[in-house]
Structures are given as structure tokens and as C-alpha cells.
Design a protein around this nucleic acid. Structure first.
Lengths: 202, 202
DNA sequence: GTCTATAAACCGATAGAC
DNA sequence: GTCTATCGGTTTATAGAC
């Protein structure tokens, strides 16, 4: 579980990070407060001391924390792929393949850390929906900047970023249910096609 | 909620259809057996009479039922779009736009009927994961056949089908969290680019 | 097969001692 | 700020009358 191995400092941080990990794996309704404090090695009352808003407030905070962690992970994947190629279309194919290997390595359990919570809670909790929305938007901004660095014109940056995230999320879903990297590979090819379509048009 | 309005016959069918609707909206752990039987207007004991495997067995059955219903819905969307154009790339853009309007009309609540359950349960329940997997595969087969009817060569049919489903699922996720049809529109454009890339290559 | 009552465990949340 | 005990309600599942 890369990105979650950092040393845990305060009780509050330990609760957030443990919550983020459990919400990732089990979803929001599927994770109990009792399990969170138990695995965070914290007293039960602490969670309501630090999060007066209860489970909903903890969920929103955990989503935002996961978002920052995962952005760093994706950044690292891009940086690693950049050591092998400079062509953007080749680069994204490489990133999708790497994402597939990561999901396979987790035995098809760990893909996007917030997708499950987003689907479960977007029509139920406005604070959690907003946390997911803000997180996705921050990812899109990062992806757009990355495409810009590779010469993609400004008008196409956001569209390509949305295409990238959409393909990644959809492929994660199919990969987890099929226990196969095939959807990630196909998504990488599709992403390359979209990039080439934009580059050709300009 | 189109597709769920058919007359309900047996108690068993009523439980499956009500379960499917609630799992769609609230996810699997977020839906209680009590709520299902209450809304299905069935006695509580019936659910364990018809589903000795308990909630897990009902969940798998509900997923398979939803899969059939949704396939018919997507078929209808394609048929409707086909009254306006014969070009495959234009057709898929039309279908993605229509999907976006459907999600908007449900106030960003109803998108894919099984995606939430798939993410929640794929690493928890093997019967439910398999039901989701089989459902996705049946959708892919239907999409592949549709592309074949539009002249897509056999070697590219499955790849394009995966691209379509991946883009649709990812765009549904982003649309629900952002409350915007933008991801569906971008996904439609990306799908068109993939189709044109295949057609150009052959 | 239908339906009710209830078991046994768990849920989120709170009170209050320390 | 830490920790425990507990409340009231809910969960899945079962037992057993009809």
C-alpha cells in the first residue's frame, strides 16, 4: 500500500489515515467507527473529540487526505515513465500499464482511493461529495499542467485531463471486477488516440 | 426510473427488483434487508425463504437483473440515436450526450446500476464480483456486436467496446460528483476519436 | 409458503470520570 | 486531551407459529 507507510504522528492524523485506508477498501457505509479507532490504536472517544461532525466529517477529511496522497503517487508514475520516453502518447500508455500492475499487485483491491466513496455518498452527503469533487478537480489541474508541459495547447488541456481521469476510473472498475489488466491497457491505447487526435488537429 | 416500471409479479421478483433499485441508489452495505422487504411489500421472512444465501445471494441476483434491464436501456439509446445519424462516431457522441441528460434528469443520482456495488463488493464477495463481471461482459458483447453492425472489423470490436464502457463508467463517476454533463460530453468526444483511429487504421 | 417475534451482534453517538 | 461505559437504534439472520 504505497503512500500510506509514512510515520504516524498525532492521534488525529492516525485516525484520518486509518479512515482513509478503510474507506478506500471497504467504502463508507461498510466501514465502522469502531474499526477505525481500533486499527488506528486510538480510544473510541477521540474520534468525536477531533471530529465533532462525526463520521461524515471524518469521511470528508479522509477523502481530501487520500486525494493528496494519490496525486503524489500519480506524479511519481509519470516521472518514472518519463525516464523511458518523451513522447506524450507513449508516456500515458506507460502510466496506464503501470497503474494496471499496481492494481494487480494489490490483488485487485486498491485502485482509486475515493471512487467507491464518491459513488456511495455523492447523492447522500454534500460535504463528502464536495470533498470528492474538489479532489477530482485538483487531479485534473495537475494532469492539465502536465499535458501543458508536453506542449498541449491550453484549449485542449482540460479536455485531455478529463479523458485521462475518466478512462482511468472506468478501467479501474472493470479491472477490479474482471481481475485483469486488459481494461487498463485498452484505456491507455484510447488515451493515446485522444492525444494524437488533439496533436494532429493543431 | 425507466426500466423499473414493469408490473411486479411474484414476491421473489418483487424482492429482486426492489433490491436492485435500492442497491443502485444506496450501494450494498448501505441498504438493509428490512428496507428491501418493506418497499417490496413482502414479509420479512420471505427474503430468507427465497434467498437462503441471505443478503449476498440477493445482491448477486439483483446485479444480474439490473444488468439485463440496463442493457435494454442502452439498446434503446442507440436505436434512438440511429434515427438521426448513420455515422458511428456521431452516433456514440449522441449516446453519451443522452446518457448525460439521463443522469441530470435523475438529479445526478442514477447512473450505472451496478458500478457502486461492484466497487464495494469486488474484494469482499466472490459471488457478487462474478455477477458484476458477467454483467459487464454481457454488455461488452452487446456493444461489440453493435460496432460490428457498423462495419468495425472483428479484431477491434472488443477493444472499442471496452473503451466505450470504460469511458461511460468513468464519466458517470465524474458527472455525479461534479453535477455536470461535461465529463459525458468529453467522453463522447474521446470515444469518437478512438473510433476514427480504428477506422483510419483499416 | 407466509408471516411474526426475536435473537445476537453491531451501528453511530454521547456522557462523564480521570 | 484520554479513555470507558453505555444508550438507543439498527443490522443480518433464525426460530417457530400458522
Amino acid at each position: 500500500m504505497p503512500g500510506y507507510a509514512g510515520k504516524m504522528t498525532s492521534t488525529r492524523e492516525r485516525i484520518i489515515q486509518t479512515g482513509a485506508r478503510l474507506f478506500w477498501r471497504q467504502g463508507f457505509p461498510g466501514t465502522g467507527m469502531k474499526q477505525i479507532v481500533a486499527e488506528a490504536d486510538a480510544p473510541f472517544g477521540s474520534v468525536y473529540h477531533f471530529f465533532p461532525g462525526g463520521k461524515e466529517a471524518l469521511g470528508a477529511e479522509a477523502v481530501r487526505w487520500s486525494g493528496g496522497q494519490y496525486a503524489a503517487l500519480v506524479d511519481a508514475a509519470f516521472a518514472d515513465a518519463a525516464t523511458r520516453t518523451n513522447d506524450l502518447a507513449t508516456l500515458v500508455v506507460d502510466v496506464f500499464v503501470a497503474a494496471g500492475e499496481a492494481v494487480r499487485a494489490s490483488e485487485w483491491a486498491d485502485a482509486c482511493p475515493i471512487a467507491t466513496v464518491a459513488l456511495e455518498m455523492s447523492s447522500v452527503s454534500e460535504p463528502i461529495r464536495l470533498a470528492c469533487h474538489d479532489t477530482f478537480e485538483s487531479w485534473l489541474a495537475g494532469l492539465g499542467a502536465r499535458f501543458a508541459a508536453h506542449g498541449v495547447v491550453e484549449a485542449a488541456q482540460r479536455e485531455l485531463a478529463i479523458t485521462f481521469l475518466t478512462l482511468l476510473e472506468g478501467a479501474f472498475l472493470l479491472a477490479r471486477t474482471s481481475r485483469s489488466v486488459e481494461p487498463l491497457h485498452v484505456a491507455g491505447t484510447a488515451m493515446a488516440a485522444s492525444i494524437r487526435a488533439v496533436v494532429t488537429a493543431t
